[in-house]
Design a binder for these strands. Sequence first.
DNA 1: CTGTTAGCGCCTTCAG
DNA 2: CTGAAGGCGCTAACAG
Lengths: 316, 316
Amino acid sequence: MCLLYRVHFISDPTKQRVIEAARKLGYVPNLSARQLRNREDHRRITLALLWPMDTRASTIVRFLNGIQEYIITEEEMEIELLIEPYGEVGIQSVKGLEVPNRFNGAILAHTTKADEQLMDGFSPSVPIVQFHRYSSKYSYVNANNFQAGEKVAEHFIQNRHERIAILYPEVSSEALEQRLAGIVGRLEKDLQTEYIQKTCTFTENGGYQAVRELIRDAYHPTALICISDHVAMGALSALHDHGISVPDQCEVMGFDNQEFSKFTIPKLSTVHLPVEKMAKRATQILVKSILNPMCPVTQEVFDLEIIHRSTTKQGI
Amino acid sequence: MCLLYRVHFISDPTKQRVIEAARKLGYVPNLSARQLRNREDHRRITLALLWPMDTRASTIVRFLNGIQEYIITEEEMEIELLIEPYGEVGIQSVKGLEVPNRFNGAILAHTTKADEQLMDGFSPSVPIVQFHRYSSKYSYVNANNFQAGEKVAEHFIQNRHERIAILYPEVSSEALEQRLAGIVGRLEKDLQTEYIQKTCTFTENGGYQAVRELIRDAYHPTALICISDHVAMGALSALHDHGISVPDQCEVMGFDNQEFSKFTIPKLSTVHLPVEKMAKRATQILVKSILNPMCPVTQEVFDLEIIHRSTTKQGI
DNA sequence: CTGTTAGCGCCTTCAG
DNA sequence: CTGAAGGCGCTAACAG
């Protein structure tokens, strides 16, 4: 019992009555007032993590791991992390961007096009760092997804593939579109290589179904570029079910380098995305901007590398 | 710029000087004061999610998904979610449990034995709901892991296995220990069945290495019980690398029913853990306790069912 | 146009 | 033992 928790001089029955009344009125102690009163939060700041709670949520674990390292080591400030999982409505539902009293700063992750337009239009009341996307206006930490896409395409061109299928999600983000653009851009330059784009949901099941449909339609890809490891895992499963051997009959490439992708069968070749490092950096930049409102916009891009494991063939 | 953001009558150079001074002093606006002043937070409560940022973090995504559904539909209150990822120090590092001004209530997930002892000892300043563990003192939402362990063991006894290996993690939680206890308890009742316990880290790599070591030591299991799907995935990978066919030469069972386990090769049989439902329920109970401090302790246990896919054999 | 102040809700302290 | 009041930091409103 926290209400009345140090009031000794009130008799128990009276306490009961007060508590009962409080319950009826729906009274909840006001945290802001308590914090203000106790003023032990002088060096505390609250960061918000605006993350879409759709299928792209899985990297949030890696993000949190990356961020935590920073939070713990940061001694100057005490950092509090607010999760704002927003749904399909988009970022507009997050109140704290308009009002400056919810959090001191925010990291926006995987925003959609609509979100981005919204963000361009108005000026948020607190510093913002965009995660995994470019921005002309705000600080960001991004990865060179376009170049990574080119590298992946390059690999498959080298291996002289006849039929390349690109599995990419309908609900997209800039990062994923950049990957696609990089892949397609490079493939287009090479006239010998044929490819098709196949949309799917951004899940294992999406990859599975997409491959099934391709095969049903008598399209037998010799290479599969999956826009995420999750999709790739589903694709591997479907290829296996159809008796197509990887990488002999079909090479497969993923994106992200999730923990599990070392343990698929065969072990998945993928593009390493340094989520943890990016998260740490994004948090650093945000905290700096909060402490120094005049801090210039900081924009960083991480280079990405292909990790060849067992679903691709090298040096043929 | 949020500082001075509506003060129009101050000249720009002066603004600059003020901001510069603020920066030098390390001034950060006090959110509590702002919130208090603007009092539009009458019906807002803050929930904390105390989650260990170790390898058990992966279910946090499912948890967040489950919780979000509730948060959005709950109209009476505006619910804010604070993540307190605590490290190896344990729960003691979370200040808000002692002081009643950080959050209105907390969900403790995957606490360790040390944490549990600590919690038994003192009375937290806010309502608590334990997630995925029993408690004599607090509300909890748990799953019947013991019974699930028994069911799994029962299956393998039915299939008359000669060598069963149980892979379970060193850093454990009550839930995992219950699984183990259920498995071992049931196996012990059957004198014909031999089994061994093998510890491993709680990751895909842990499962992979454990199986490698077993085989190196000339122990060829005919059944593998993995205490989580992640471990199972690693185990499957290792079995594949050693040319051991699943389920013919070795059956494999996981726990949790993570999204990916439908897409391993072969498709993983596992025990479904309804994380989303449990998360939603835990949040409901917590909110109720916050709104009604006299609310009695609520304790709920979900039953678990085996999902047979392709890594086990049924009806032989 | 500029400076002052009241009061948000809470809890500690001090006065009666 | 009980009751009243001050002040945490902020900003809208008001007074000069």
